[in-house]
Design a protein around this nucleic acid. Sequence first.
DNA 1: GTCAGTGCAAACTTTTTGCAACTAC
DNA 2: GTAGTTGCAAAAAGTTTGCACTGAC
Lengths: 162, 162
Amino acid sequence: MKTTDVQDTVKQIFTEYLNANGHRKTPERFAILDTIYSIDGHFDIDSLYSLMMETKKFRVSRATLYNTIDLLINARLVIKHQFTNSSQYEKSYNRETHHHQICTQCGKVTEFQDQDLQEAIEQCKLSRFSQSHYSLYIYGLCSKCQRANKRKKTNNINKKEK
Amino acid sequence: MKTTDVQDTVKQIFTEYLNANGHRKTPERFAILDTIYSIDGHFDIDSLYSLMMETKKFRVSRATLYNTIDLLINARLVIKHQFTNSSQYEKSYNRETHHHQICTQCGKVTEFQDQDLQEAIEQCKLSRFSQSHYSLYIYGLCSKCQRANKRKKTNNINKKEK
DNA sequence: GTCAGTGCAAACTTTTTGCAACTAC
DNA sequence: GTAGTTGCAAAAAGTTTGCACTGAC
């Protein structure tokens, strides 16, 4: 599916969602949806705010961003993550399911895919619970930080570390 | 393993960790460790603070709670979660590996176990990344909220909902 | 005695809320 | 016209920081 097709489709899904729930179709809401679906990967409220100013010259308040993102989450067009203190978001329509690996040292978040794992999680039967979506976060050290630590350890050969 | 054994063991692990990293063994730190290992399930800073006042009559500042919990996370005795805006913690030594299911409506967090799933995740080979721990959060509706929604839908049979 | 650790309060960051002005319907 | 939305600013909530005092070593 081309990017433009996705943009159109999500716009349509959002329109239907707004109609179905008696919400208004304001220009702010569609500008936000559009910007979000132009972003690859994760973003937070602040970077979304800046990006809208830069690319669309469209100024919306942070309050509206929070409000609209809530609607988009309910419409299943956006997923919210909380790796750190501030929330991160990402578009969710027409994206491959993926998992996240997070470096506990530098905080870098990388995505990866694993078909088997994905199936195992989706197959997982939960009693009295209707599964809608999930997040798998794997914590550890990225290769860069591993190397950095190895260097540090060699330099401080006397200093015992856990 | 009995609870008292666990308490003793984690105290020993923490002592070793503090020694190895040149930190002091203050009474605050051990009181916090002790209280945390008396809690079943998740807790946040505020409830830990209250609990220490109630049960141990031990008053520590929030700043110290944050500091000490960071040490405990590094010592691998505590795990941090961020389901919501505020961080939640849980003891991690001698606990069965478990996953979390979170109700997107009422926010209730339940734990469950699944041996196959656990193995699938641990086996998962990540290129250039050394896995230390992981979190699997499954979102959906708990049975209570499912029933509540069903009732609501029947009452508003005319109001179309997504 | 020294310096890491503590308590406190202030600062900071992120998110929510109240309200007047605006606009989609 | 009216009620849902928006922007703004203030408030709230959670966490971090600076600093003087304390106590583990």
